[in-house]
Nucleic acid binder design. Structure first.
Lengths: 228, 228
DNA sequence: TACTGTGAAGCTATTCACAGCG
DNA sequence: CGCTGTGAATAGCTTCACAGTA
């Protein structure tokens, strides 16, 4: 269709979830000085099939050139805009254990549309320390800090037990996007998005498939080829 | 494809991905001494709808009792078995930066069907140090260690650059399940499963939806309703 | 009665295959 | 010609609604 002036057609969730991968692949190509790429090549870089890639991109508008491919720079720019990464989103990380520390130091963030503006913890030993260039604040000041610094996205990197209450407090002061690393489901009112990242869940899914591969085997058979 | 010995019907991927959540909810209920639970209650704990839960569980068999509900202990046991968590899977973590450190210390793992049997890094400063009760080994010894310790699942917690090569080495010595935290796609031969966890991707998906909530706004407008 | 398990319907996502364009 | 963008077909997932059962 004649997409785009500001004419927003609904973009499918499955497509949105893949746009970051395409963006990453495009950045790599740009770094290597490549100016143009076909759906076949870009799909391979991102680990999907080309028909899927073309369908996904078609939801953004017609940014390809038939017979040629997609302009790397231009497509990257469009995806960046579509994902809302043209501006910097202020992020607060709640819980500065090993994981919170890792997240705070994660360089990709600062270069990709996000800025960590607050690190909060409950532990008096941590409060006041400088981590990744930020002073750790007290979780008691959560409401004040979130409001003062205009936090848009909250990252919960605490144990399960305090997670729901912390989430409620974030939502109460206007945060409508939460990334949850705590191993529990969070309930939030309509209009608030929660995404969950869970190491255990991922490993358990792998274990399920692994089990199917080695039905009764405790024995490792490293160089055995699988018979279907 | 071919159903296996114990009358295995293919369990849908979407269902497998939710079983860990159900298992967690059941563990919580068990801890609180609850013996029986309805689909409605369990679904609420896990954050899904009851029809979906019942459909999911129906793929495992008929473990519910009409008019009553599901036995907490028994259902937890069935899911544990189905996911392949009755035994302990040996896990190797490659890359002991902040993230690898966080993963190594993640208690849930050891109590839920996994055992971290190797921590590997490239950095001479780290090699030999004890982290979470384990001596960090050299990534140069990857092949020997993976074979000696029977590693079934490899966790890649390095930067993007070395990730593909490390993955290839894991696969070459028989690892067929990989959890990838590096921000890049990994390509693996048929028969090897890769799951990817990517903080940036998750935040970018949140940013997309957040942007739709506050269309042109730099201003925070918490109570504004969107007009279609 | 109060619940599960499931046929049937509806919805979303993926893939095929090719028309259409540069 | 070579490639994109997309109608049409297919596959997979979710939800409804209720028959069936302890």
């Amino acid at each position: 269709m004649i997409a785009d002036p500001a004419a927003r057609q609904e973009i499918p969730d499955a497509t949105v979830a893949r746009l970051p991968q395409y963006l990453r692949a495009l950045s790599d190509l740009a770094d290597r000085g490549i100016l143009s790429v076909s759906s076949e090549e870009l799909a391979a870089s991102a680990g999907v099939r080309s028909a899927k890639l073309r369908r996904d991109l078609s939801h953004l508008g017609s940014y390809g050139v038939r017979g040629v491919g997609y302009g790397v720079e231009m497509l990257a720019h469009e995806i960046t805009r579509e994902l809302g990464l043209a501006r910097d989103w202020p992020v607060a990380i709640i819980g500065v254990g090993h994981l919170g520390h890792a997240l705070a130091s994660y360089v990709d963030l600062t270069t990709q549309g996000f800025q960590v503006v607050a690190l909060l913890d409950r532990d008096c030993e941590l409060i006041g320390q400088v981590i990744a260039g930020m002073v750790v604040g007290s979780v008691d000041d959560l409401e004040r800090i979130v409001i003062e610094r205009g936090v848009a996205i909250g990252v919960i990197a605490t144990p399960a037990q305090p997670a729901q209450k912390l989430c409620d407090r974030l939502v109460a002061v206007g945060v409508r996007s939460v990334l949850n690393f705590a191993p529990c489901a969070l309930s939030v009112p309509e209009g608030v998005d929660v995404r969950k990242v869970d190491l255990s869940t991922e490993l358990q899914i792998l274990a399920f498939h692994q089990q199917r591969k080695s039905p009764a085997g405790h024995r490792r058979t490293p160089l055995l080829e699988v018979a279907p």
